[in-house]
Computed example of a mutant assay.
Amino acid sequence: MDTQTPSAATGTRGLTAAVVLFVGALLTFTGLTWDVQWHEDVGPDTFFTLPHLFLYAGSAVSGLASLTAVLMTTAARRAGQVPDPTVGGVPVGVFGRVFTAPLGYLVSGSGAAAFLLYGLWDQWWHGIYGFDAVIDSPPHVGLLLSVAMTLVGTVIVFAASRDRLWGRLGVFAAFGLLAGFTTITAVAFQDLSDTVDSMHVAMAWFVSLILFSGAGFIRKGGIAVAVALGVIQAISWWFSPWATRRYADAVDLPVRDYISGVPTMPALMPMALILIALLTYPLLATTARWAPPVAGGLAGVALVVLQDFQDALVYGIPAPAVDDLLPTALVAAVLGLLAGHLGTRFGRMLRLAAGARPEGA
């Protein structure tokens, strides 16, 4: 009997653990969009709020799912069984092989653990310095990096089961969450330059990298990533203002009377990503080595230019002049070349999430 062939029971366990991990990531993402909107519409808050509960509960769910997968894989290995690499990825020895962890769950679990540790730091930070509403405080940066790590692990977990339909769907759903999440991290770069719109450049870099990772994973993966982000953006556009106002009413807090009325985090997500994915697809469909960097450069320029016009449309502000866009577009083009090159390679690496033989097999 071939011990490398996944059984039906193994496939079911893989699906259950992956879904629980994704639910945790989704809870964290929902809490983040809600918390960002709360700061915009209501103001600074305490540590113990409902959006924060979603944030930390999601991280805890992801952490527990990852820990359970690691312990089950370790137990199977000690019982003399060969762990199935399609369940979370290639098994990796941890702490001198005391534990055997599927790669995806090792990454996601490490991110969840780091999130809780940074959360303790954030609580201490608020106790010392007061309640801040900025995205780039040291503990907030750590929290954001931890969430990104958990989402990357989630992508790896589903990629390991790419031969199953749920695995492929999960990859692009997780990619969509990751792309939506990275747009808020771009805010931390907004004061980096007076000449270049560094926030839009950072957003274009992150989103392009994820878009082309999806394209490297499967041929139409970039389009799938863009569709997933569009769905997430549409749902978040409705949810974050609605939940904020409902929660404010429940705790008898007023909503600011000078708010823009625009959902903050969804408005950061590019609305034209599906169009960009469709326009760059013919380039990526070729086998030319220059195609991914060129597609990345085009995507970078398109993202920063269209994002400025998106802001003008959404917020009712004047559209930028062409001369003002040139420095930003130039930097975005250079970084886009790199995003296209690296992203497609990352996507190809994801194909190997379950492709290598387990250690010692």
Results as ranks from 00 to 15, higher is better:
Leu27Pro: 10
Leu103Asn: 05
Gln190Val: 11
Leu268Gly: 02
Ser137Met: 01
Thr244Val: 06
Gly88Trp: 10
Met1Ala: 14
Thr154Phe: 03
Gly216Glu: 05
Gly296Ala: 03
Thr344Leu: 08
Gly170Glu: 05
Gly119Lys: 00
Trp34Phe: 15
Met203Phe: 06
Ala291Ile: 12
Ala353Met: 12
Val187Met: 08
Gly216Phe: 05
Phe95Pro: 09
Ala18Trp: 06
Leu306Ser: 10
Trp290Ser: 10
Ser193Met: 12
Ser62Pro: 11
Gly104Pro: 01
Leu32Met: 08
Thr12Lys: 13
Asp132Arg: 11
Asp249Cys: 05
His126Ile: 10
Val301Glu: 06
Leu21Met: 11
Asp311Val: 05
Leu116Asp: 06
Asp136Lys: 07
Ala9Arg: 15
Leu326Ser: 07
Tyr118Lys: 05
Leu53Gly: 13
Leu21His: 10
Gly63Ala: 04
Leu117Asp: 01
Val196Gly: 05
Thr86Val: 15
Ala329Pro: 15
Gln37Leu: 04
Val262Lys: 11
His200Asn: 11
Asp163Met: 04
Gly343Asp: 10
Leu143Phe: 10
Thr16Glu: 12
Phe172Glu: 04
Gly127Pro: 01
Gln37His: 05
Trp242Val: 08
Gln37Lys: 10
Ala60Thr: 15
Val152Glu: 07
His126Ser: 13
Arg256Asn: 01
Val231Arg: 06
Thr150Gly: 14
Gly96Glu: 10
Ser62Gln: 14
Ala8Glu: 08
Pro102Leu: 12
Ile128Lys: 13
Gly261Trp: 02
Ala302Gln: 08
Thr12Trp: 09
Gly80Leu: 11
Leu165Ser: 14
Pro83Leu: 00
Arg168Asp: 09
Thr28Tyr: 06
Thr49Val: 11
Ala234Thr: 01
Pro102Lys: 11
Pro139Ala: 01
Gln123His: 11
Arg357Glu: 14
Ala234Asn: 02
Ala148Leu: 13
Phe22Asn: 11
Thr280His: 05
Ala224Cys: 09
Asp45Lys: 13
Thr10Asn: 12
Thr30Ser: 12
Tyr315Gln: 03
